[in-house]
Simulated assay, not measured.
Amino acid sequence: MNQKPIDINIENLPELFKKRNLDSNKGDHGTVGIIGGSNGMIGSVLLAGRAALKIGAGKVLIGFASKNSPISVDFIQPELMINTAIYWLKSQIRVNTWVVGCGLGQSVFSQKLINEMFILKKGSIIVIDADALNILSSKNFLSSNYKNNTLILTPHPAEAARLLNCSTQDIQENRLEAVKLLSKNFKAWIVLKGKNTLICSPNDYVIFSNKTGNPGLASSGTGDVLAGMIGSLISQKICLEQALLGAVWLHGKASDKLSMENIGPIGLTASEIADSARKIRNNITYN
């Protein structure tokens, strides 16, 4: 019999709503490295980076999955530090959390980049999203490379099906079993997205269920925003469990708040989620 998941609520998340020290600096709030944005999909990695900043990271690096960076500055969010993925992977800058996959594509170049990342960044915390999950499920991924890292996988049902070599229907009919099996197979934290997103720990296979969110999140880019939020909260030295639960809860709560203001669920955009989540976190923390 499947265990009953634990519902996520504010009481689970004391570290998320802890006030910051008055003498803190950007180094105290962590550095996130976000890799993706291959040709034609640069918006994905920018959405993730902007979300990471707005949810509180001290510094965010954007690494494009290309030989040359398609842009040198994001004029909407010029605080982002932009270069190629290889540049940041070989840099001496200390990165607390890596997020990989947003708009990455599945080209030979992207496949080689993923394998190289796991070699160059042994011992890192890595959030694996989107196309990186599809590469992970392919025969072109060298599975021995990822075992020295702390992994967080964030699949939607179709990506979970590819990882488990089954159908999307199988995942949806057995979500509790699927999230636990993914956690066991990959020795990773799993965020199985969808209605009542599930989070499973690889340590004891405890499963959490999120009740925030609405159909407004079923639009392009919202997963990229969630990946950026997860990487950001982990980098802020919030314990891994609370960072994952907090990001998922905030992401859904932001869409609920926007829908209450008639900014959704129809037509809700990913860009609006991070701003709403920032307001919610600050309001609960400081009021």
Results as ranks from 00 to 15, higher is better:
residue 8 I to M: 01
residue 9 N to I: 00
residue 10 I to P: 08
residue 12 N to F: 04
residue 14 P to Q: 00
residue 14 P to G: 00
residue 18 K to S: 12
residue 23 D to W: 09
residue 26 K to E: 05
residue 27 G to Y: 15
residue 33 G to R: 03
residue 33 G to I: 03
residue 34 I to R: 07
residue 35 I to K: 01
residue 40 G to M: 05
residue 42 I to M: 12
residue 48 A to E: 05
residue 51 A to L: 08
residue 54 K to N: 12
residue 56 G to M: 12
residue 60 V to L: 05
residue 63 G to I: 01
residue 68 N to W: 08
residue 69 S to E: 06
residue 71 I to S: 04
residue 71 I to R: 08
residue 72 S to Y: 11
residue 77 Q to I: 02
residue 78 P to R: 04
residue 80 L to Q: 10
residue 80 L to A: 05
residue 92 Q to I: 08
residue 99 V to N: 05
residue 101 G to R: 10
residue 102 C to N: 12
residue 104 L to E: 05
residue 104 L to V: 08
residue 111 Q to V: 09
residue 125 I to Y: 11
residue 129 D to T: 07
residue 129 D to F: 01
residue 130 A to V: 14
residue 134 N to R: 11
residue 141 F to S: 12
residue 143 S to W: 02
residue 146 Y to H: 13
residue 147 K to Y: 11
residue 152 I to K: 08
residue 153 L to P: 01
residue 162 R to H: 02
residue 162 R to Y: 00
residue 163 L to R: 05
residue 164 L to P: 02
residue 164 L to R: 03
residue 165 N to M: 04
residue 167 S to D: 07
residue 170 D to S: 12
residue 170 D to G: 07
residue 170 D to F: 13
residue 172 Q to N: 15
residue 174 N to V: 04
residue 174 N to I: 02
residue 177 E to P: 03
residue 177 E to S: 10
residue 178 A to P: 01
residue 178 A to Y: 02
residue 181 L to E: 15
residue 183 S to R: 02
residue 184 K to M: 07
residue 185 N to W: 04
residue 188 A to H: 05
residue 189 W to A: 01
residue 190 I to V: 08
residue 194 G to R: 09
residue 197 T to M: 05
residue 197 T to G: 06
residue 200 C to Y: 07
residue 201 S to E: 06
residue 203 N to E: 14
residue 203 N to V: 14
residue 205 Y to C: 03
residue 208 F to T: 09
residue 208 F to N: 10
residue 211 K to M: 05
residue 213 G to H: 04
residue 214 N to I: 00
residue 215 P to M: 04
residue 218 A to L: 08
residue 220 S to G: 15
residue 220 S to Q: 14
residue 224 D to L: 08
residue 225 V to I: 07
residue 231 G to I: 10
residue 232 S to A: 15
residue 239 C to Y: 12
residue 239 C to L: 15
residue 243 A to Y: 09
residue 243 A to F: 07
residue 246 G to V: 03
residue 253 K to A: 11
residue 254 A to G: 01
residue 255 S to Y: 04
residue 255 S to Q: 05
residue 257 K to G: 09
residue 264 G to P: 03
residue 266 I to E: 09
residue 271 S to I: 05
residue 272 E to K: 04
residue 272 E to G: 00
residue 273 I to R: 03
residue 278 R to D: 10
residue 283 N to F: 10
residue 284 I to C: 09
residue 286 Y to F: 15
